[in-house]
Amino acid sequence: MLELMGLLLIFMIIAAIVAIETRDLLAAVISVTAVGFGSVIAFFYMRAPDVAIVPIVVEVLILVILIRATLRVGLKTFVGNRDFFGMMVTIAMLLVIFLAGIRVFNDLPAFGEPVMAKMMDAPSRIYLANGLNDTGAANIVTAVLLDYRAYDTLGEATVLFTSIIGAIAIIRKKARKKPSEPEVEEWTV
C-alpha cells in the first residue's frame, strides 16, 4: 500500500510541474486543482477524513477564484520565465536543498511509524487515551482543535478574518480622499 502513496505523490509532482510550466492558462489552473485533489485522496488514504473534507471544498473555491481572476480578464496564455542565468542559479540552489534534504531525512522516523509510537512523552498519547473523557468529543481531532489547542483555532479564525478585511481594503475602489471629506461606506467595488 505504501507504493500507492508514492505513486500518488509522483502524480502530484507531475501535475504541479504541468501547472507551473504549461502555457495554457486554464490548464494551469486545472492542474493545480489536480494537485489539491491528489492531496485529498492522500488524506483519505492516510486516515484523515476531517482534513480531507475541507480541501475538497477549498480546492473548488480556489478553482473558482483563480478562473475568475484569469478568464474574465480575457487572457489565454502565459509568457515565459525570468532570465536564463537566474533560472540556472535557482535550479542549482534547489538541487542542493534537495540533496541535503534526502540526506538528512534519513534521520526522520520511517513513513508509517509516527513519532508518538516511540516518544513516551508525546502529547498525542494523552489525547488518544483521555480525549473522550477530558472533552466529551468522540472525534479526537475536534477535541484537539477546539479544546486542547483551541487557542490555535482562535488564531486561525483571526487569520481568516484578517485576510477578508485585508482583501476588502485592497479591492476598494477609492482609497484616498481629502482630509476634510466625510467618510462614505460603499460596497460597489
Binding site: 472533552t135 468529543a137 477546539l146 481568516l160 478574518f161 476588502i168 479591492i171
Partner: peptide, 27 residues
C-alpha cells in the same frame, strides 16, 4: 456532549461561511 465544542463549531461556521461569501462576492 463536549460542552463548548459544539458552540464553538457554530460560531466558527458562521464566521467561515460569511467570510467566504464576502470574498467570493468581492471577486
Amino acid at each position: 456532549s463536549a460542552g463548548i465544542i459544539p458552540l464553538a463549531n457554530i460560531a466558527i461556521a458562521l464566521k467561515v461561511a460569511s467570510s467566504l461569501f464576502v470574498i467570493f462576492m468581492m471577486l
